[in-house]
Every structure is written in structure tokens, then in C-alpha cells.
């Protein structure tokens, strides 16, 4: 079972709440202070993406997060249930080309670009229900599982 599980209605207003909760759990789990901005931003991106997907395909379904604190690693799993029969886009291999003003404002690809640029330990995969984004950060050895 996850250390913390979180489900929220697919509304933009709740994304900030999710960011705050995940950052608080990450801090408590022992993620270094200098990584918390990265956690906050990456989780915000993943949740924003899930909210937009749900609003398009299944607005009544909540977005679900699992936070795990095991084996010297803090892991966040963001699941959406917005399967539309299409496989998830692969992670972009590089930032948007030249950042051209024409292509840089696609929020979905930009969000995935930010996640892949920020987080070294990330997997994005299709699930039977939709898409799963799994992100991990190291925790200080003495902090894991404390409190």
C-alpha cells in the first residue's frame, strides 16, 4: 500500500493542493530541500496533464496519486483514467526545437518536456485505464521511514 494516496476531482483549482500535499510528504520522507522545487514542479505538471485529460474524456473521474516512501526512494505515481484508445506520446528526446513560438505552446508536450527535463527517474506508460507517470527522487538514508 502506498504511504499516502490522494484522489481529487479533475479541476484545475485542485492541482495546487496536490502540489502542496506531495511536497509536504516529500519533505517528511527526507527528500533534500534543493530537490523539493523539482518535486513540486514535476508533480504539478503531471497533475495538470491528468486534469486536462480527464476534462476531455471523463470529467467525473478523479485523478489519483500514490506516494511511496520505500527503499531510500520517494516515488510519486500519477494515474489518469482518460484512455482514448491512443498510446501515450513517447517522452520528447529534446526540448522543443528552438522553442519556436509556433510549437512551444502545446501544454501537453510542453508539460512532458518539463517532466523529462527535470526528473532523471521517470517512466511514462499507458495503462488499461489511461496513462501512468511514475517519478522518483532519492531520500536521505536516515530519514527513510521515520516518523
Amino acid at each position: 500500500m502506498a504511504t499516502v494516496e490522494l484522489a481529487f476531482s479533475a479541476l484545475p483549482v485542485h492541482v495546487r493542493t496536490a502540489r502542496l500535499i506531495v511536497t509536504a510528504v516529500a519533505r517528511r520522507s527526507g527528500v533534500e530541500e534543493e530537490l523539493l522545487d523539482e518535486v513540486r514542479l514535476a508533480v504539478g505538471e503531471a497533475c495538470s496533464r491528468a486534469v486536462e485529460a480527464h476534462r476531455l474524456h471523463c470529467p467525473a473521474e478523479p485523478v489519483r496519486l500514490e506516494l511511496h516512501d520505500d527503499d531510500g526512494r520517494f516515488e510519486v505515481v500519477v494515474n489518469d483514467a482518460a484512455s482514448n484508445g491512443k498510446p501515450v506520446d513517447p517522452l520528447p528526446a529534446a526540448p522543443p526545437r528552438g522553442g519556436g513560438a509556433g510549437g512551444g505552446d502545446d501544454p501537453d508536450s510542453l508539460g512532458l518536456a518539463v517532466i523529462s527535463g527535470l526528473v532523471d527517474d521517470v517512466e511514462i506508460a499507458p495503462t488499461p485505464d489511461g496513462t501512468q507517470i511514475r517519478m522518483g527522487w532519492p531520500v536521505a538514508a536516515h530519514s527513510s521511514g521515520s516518523n
Binding site: 513560438a101 512551444g104 505552446d105 502545446d106 508539460g111
Partner: peptide
């Protein structure tokens, strides 16, 4: 205090408009 890709998209959209 915080900026995500949605905000970046808005800035890029603004840039397109003024250009």
C-alpha cells in the same frame, strides 16, 4: 512563486500575438 508549462504556454501565446 511558481511557474509551470501552462504559464509558459501563455507567455509563448502572448509572444505570438505581439509579434
Amino acid at each position: 512563486e511558481f511557474l509551470d508549462s501552462t504559464g509558459l504556454g501563455v507567455l509563448v501565446g502572448g509572444l505570438k500575438r505581439v509579434r
